[in-house]
């Protein structure tokens, strides 16, 4: 983890590449241009000269020479649909990096981590895993169907548990919250929850019930 406080800036950033992972989920890659961030932070991205940014967690690692965000196109949404249409070379407006959904430097090498995400909520966890080699983690990633898994090859297979609620093609058939209910929770781990607020609240209750303290739980609500 980078120790220095980072001066956030609002910048124009140039799209380098757009990578479509499924019908609705895509990755935007930008020139890094010296941007420093801490894994887990997010940026506010918008179309140039419009006051309409949205928050997106950084998906790439601290050491990568580009930076990426992972976006789900929301059907009735405004910005996530427009961003899907951008082309390499286009300029977007960016503010950040921002936020405190980061790993505690004192815990990184001493603690175990459980990362629990729904959908694109996996983005900050991808950044944690890429940024900190040797991190002792386990990921529970909730999607509806197996084909919605997001670049699972980026994670250690033994640490990654795809939870599919709509079919049995994942490692676990059911929601991430079902996984938490039916499996023991390690009392010494730190729990990071990211994505939909309903999942986060349910997971919070389940973990609380299993003896995990609220101070061991860290959350980032997307919507």
């Amino acid at each position: 983890m980078q120790e220095n406080t980072i001066k956030p800036v609002k910048n124009q950033v140039k799209v380098q590449q757009i990578r479509h992972l499924s019908e609705s989920v895509y990755v935007l890659r930008f020139d890094r241009n010296g941007l420093s961030f801490e894994a887990g932070q997010h940026v506010i991205l918008g179309l140039a000269s419009k006051n309409n940014g949205r928050e997106y967690s950084v998906y790439s690692g601290e050491q990568d020479d580009f930076f990426e965000v992972l976006i789900k196109e929301v059907q009735e949404g405004d910005i996530s649909r427009k961003l899907r249409k951008v082309q390499p070379g286009d300029l977007l407006e960016m503010d950040g990096p921002l936020g405190f959904f980061t790993l505690d430097p004192d815990q990184v090498l001493t603690k175990k981590f459980v990362f629990i995400a729904t959908g694109t909520g996996i983005a900050p966890f991808s950044s944690f895993v890429k940024s900190v080699p040797g991190l002792d983690y386990k990921i529970l990633h909730g999607v509806r169907f197996g084909h919605e898994a997001i670049e699972r090859e980026n994670y250690d297979a033994a640490r990654f548990h795809l939870c599919t609620s709509g079919d049995g093609s994942g490692d676990f058939h059911g929601r991430v919250t079902d996984y938490l209910t039916t499996n023991p929770a390690d009392k010494n781990s730190e729990y990071y929850l990211c994505g939909n607020v309903k999942m986060i609240h349910q997971a919070f209750d389940i973990l609380k019930e299993k003896g995990i303290s609220s101070d061991q739980m860290h959350a980032e609500v997307y919507f």
Binding site: F100, H201, S214, M217, A219, E220, V221
Partner: peptide, 10 residues
């Protein structure tokens, strides 16, 4: 959590 206060009641 929903308010993004980033601290617990404890």
């Amino acid at each position: 959590i929903t308010m993004n206060r980033k601290h617990s009641l404890e």
